[in-house]
Nucleic acid binder design. Structure first.
Lengths: 347, 347
DNA sequence: CTGAAAGCGCTAACAA
DNA sequence: TTGTTAGCGCTTTCAG
């Protein structure tokens, strides 16, 4: 017959074409393709054969229009530039692809407003969304969660499922590691004060130190980026502390560079601990002692929580509303025993 | 009236609701919203007011169904894990967001088959796609390009617009840099042989060296990942060359780690040059001399080429079918003058 | 088990 | 300038 081998942007094959070829109604084709078993095995086979023959691909817009499901999930990150999110992107990509969902990547540039707006506008084209590092208020988050299924990462809100990486507990380990090396004067290099993880880390650090009869100080806040490392490093040196814990690896790596410039030796003059264990933390100079966070895993878990919510019949109080992923301290070469030489030494 | 503040997943507002409220036909609402100017300014204002009032959000599936345009572009990478693609993802994300397009991220895992299949299946839900590091054959690529607008990155195919990063020319610079440092025995650490950039780099290296009366050798191929750096490093040492150029930074950084383990000093015993200048190349140990590639820019340019094709009325032979982006050599600390001590020295 | 028919929300002729 | 009328491709009652 007339099957001109799909010329440029040819009219795509539809279920009607299949119906015509097989001599059944379009609705039967639809059923055969979406709910086999609800259809006579014989006709089903004919339909499937025809579909294959014609190289049929279902039109997802049309499907979405009637079914309301788009098989698309958005992943919102606050800064595509930050390697931390690479892990999230990787993890969610893997999870979603395995489940046959499309992965819509959205950079909301640290703007809560943009975040809310985008989510609201896209709510009809999404089955759900994963929010990594949301800047939204609890109110906004809860409101949005009523519009569209949401899972947050490293952020909690009443009734919103979340996966949080337990860095605070890890911070406790880090502090004990430093104390065991003889450090008594430890400073926290703060990230954005409005960020939930930042405050949690600082709180945990203070508590742990207090448990050992120590007081800790804090410098900053600094934008959690590599260039801020310079100012942060200078601030730490100025405190005369012998060790510091940085909000994240990016900052810590930036600091390392600055210490090197200033002739301050790590770890001899100063011990440095980072957070996250991002790409690069193991090959910087010196390799960074850091809190290894299961970032990819967080992405995968977030996806599976979201998808299981989507496939639930109704909305019963899902079993695991929220999961906490443990971190562990990875000791490399940026931490060492405290020495007589103070951190103020210069070459 | 009855505006119950959108309860859970409420029936979304449609143009019919707006039509009812404003007392015009649905088609007028549609026009007012998509082609203002084709409608009476007064009624337009009433419609816009009502739309805002009701918090109307157009349904993109429905729009796509009739208009055929989805305002979605897919970005295919062959391995989300590779930092090189982070740059592409960043660049495309920025470009697409600025133009109001959605960014669908797809990892095709180095499989040409998966690549072709995915593209074919999604062709109706995409306005176009950007292929970073395609593994498809020329034939397949040209075929697919007839189905859906395509732009390739670092890959060319007849009639398919592309943006290619001119690393080969940069390689020439790198070789001259090494020669000027006194190196006469330089080896290429090969990436995947089926990869177009790999062959181009090798070819350029050979040609440049020949122009200086030098012969170069090649070791590998190695998977372009950090862990392969160990084997690559050992292979290079075995050649007794005094300098090497690696297919990419990932491999080079992996090699650096291995050299360090074996007590081989870089650059005293051996000079190392990478390619791409990915995140980390500047803070590894020692900081890597490498060919800085404008990766983000490549992503942005690819987007703008694609979008300009999409908005062209027909398909006239677009002015710039293909662009070439220059690279430059960034000299850091992994290259230095050749010394008497051979590279075979061990601690 | 299958067919007919009614939309999903929107756009695009074609009239008026 | 606006309204009417068809669909886009698919799913989903509701009959048969």
């Amino acid at each position: 017959m007339d099957s001109p081998r799909q010329p440029k942007r040819a009219r795509p094959v539809t279920i009607n074409d299949i119906a015509a070829v097989t001599g059944v109604a379009a609705s039967t084709v639809s059923r055969a393709l979406t709910r086999p078993g609800r259809v006579n095995p014989a006709t089903r086979q004919r339909i499937e054969a025809a579909a294959r023959e014609l190289n049929y691909v279902p039109n997802s817009q049309a499907r979405a229009l009637t079914s309301g499901r788009t098989r698309t999930v958005a992943v919102l990150v606050s800064d595509v530039t930050n390697p931390f999110y690479f892990g999230i992107i990787r993890g969610t990509q893997q999870g979603l692809k395995a489940a046959g969902y499309a992965h819509l990547l959205i950079d909301v540039e640290d703007s809560g407003e943009l975040e809310a707006q985008t989510l609201h506008r896209m709510r009809q084209s999404l089955d759900g969304a994963i929010l990594a590092a949301s800047r939204l208020s609890e109110r906004e988050l809860v409101g949005l969660a009523a519009e569209i299924p949401l899972v947050t990462v490293n952020r909690t809100a009443r009734g919103v499922p979340s996966v949080v990486i337990d860095t605070p507990t890890g911070i406790g380990q880090a502090i004990e590691h430093l104390i065991s090396l003889g450090h008594r004067d430890i400073v926290y290099v703060s990230g954005p004060v409005r960020s939930w993880p930042n405050e949690a880390r600082w709180h945990s650090m203070r508590t742990t130190a207090a448990g050992h009869g120590l007081q800790v100080r804090r410098v900053g806040p600094f934008p959690p980026e590599r260039p801020s490392g310079s100012a942060a490093a200078d601030a730490v040196v100025n405190t005369r502390a012998t060790a510091c814990v940085a909000f994240n690896d990016l900052l810590a790596i930036g600091m390392l560079t600055r210490f090197r410039e200033r002739g301050i030796r790590v770890p001899e003059d100063l011990s440095v601990v980072g957070c996250d264990d991002i790409f690069g933390a193991d090959f910087c100079n010196p390799p960074l002692t850091t809190l290894t966070a299961p970032i990819d895993q967080a992405g995968r878990v977030a996806v599976s929580m979201l998808l299981s919510r989507l496939t639930e019949r109704t909305t019963p109080p899902g079993p695991r509303r929220s999961v906490m992923l443990p971190t562990h301290l990875t000791v490399r070469e940026s931490t060492g025993p405290v020495t007589d030489a103070g951190p103020t030494r210069r070459r």
